[in-house]
Nucleic acid binder design. Sequence first.
DNA 1: TTTTTTTGCGAAATCAATTGCAATAAAAGC
DNA 2: GCTTTTATTGCAATTGATTTCGCAAAAAAA
Lengths: 123, 123
Amino acid sequence: MRRNTTQRMAIEEVFRQNDRPLGVDEVLAYGRKLVESLNQATVYRNLKLLVDDGRLKRVTHPSLGTMYERTGKGHHHHFYCRACNHAYELPGCALNEDEIAPDGFVVEDHDVFLFGICPSCVR
Amino acid sequence: MRRNTTQRMAIEEVFRQNDRPLGVDEVLAYGRKLVESLNQATVYRNLKLLVDDGRLKRVTHPSLGTMYERTGKGHHHHFYCRACNHAYELPGCALNEDEIAPDGFVVEDHDVFLFGICPSCVR
DNA sequence: TTTTTTTGCGAAATCAATTGCAATAAAAGC
DNA sequence: GCTTTTATTGCAATTGATTTCGCAAAAAAA
């Protein structure tokens, strides 16, 4: 049976406080502000458990690599800010269903990654 | 000065024969059909040279990892067939420029990855 | 208290990509 | 055509980054 350890709760808290896709190091860094003994292996183990439990989703970003984000937020695209290196989730979908692919291709899913400058960095 | 080795020409030929994004192992496997002594390190070295020379472009696919494709084909999206594990390039862009991101986000580029079944696998 | 999961730590396994080096081969020079 | 020069290859070893693992100690929950 799964136990509510301070480490696991801290990792979930990290995602609550920073509601955007986070890399393993980010989770470790933010998590250590909550539980300073937090270990990298513990982060890896818990990220895996949280994915298994359906609380997190694993995403592979073309520039940032493996990231994790909270589930249950509906379809969204990803924005990567080249200035602060943060990833953001942008709700909604700007893809035209009909011209998405030529006849014959059966499209089941899609991932959209945007690149640019985020509002906090633009000013 | 750059030499036209049989290995390098074979690698370029591989991309001419299979005009879709290819992974390093695919380039190696197809390349060995043309030059059986072809070595992995040679593939890595030449892919890098061909990128430097602007003949290939490096792409990071969320599922397939690092891939290379020929340059000069204009903007396109990528389609990944879950049946044959091949990547395809789909010319054109089905993204709505205006609703692409909320106000404040400056979008400079984007990558779109589609997932599904390709025409050859669908029948 | 007792039981059992979980942690921290360092070691180790993976995987992708790079490098050193002697042998090879393309291109230039004779 | 033959020799010289030097880029390139093949091979194995190595790096570097990411992820996993073994195990004793710690801490939930029973």
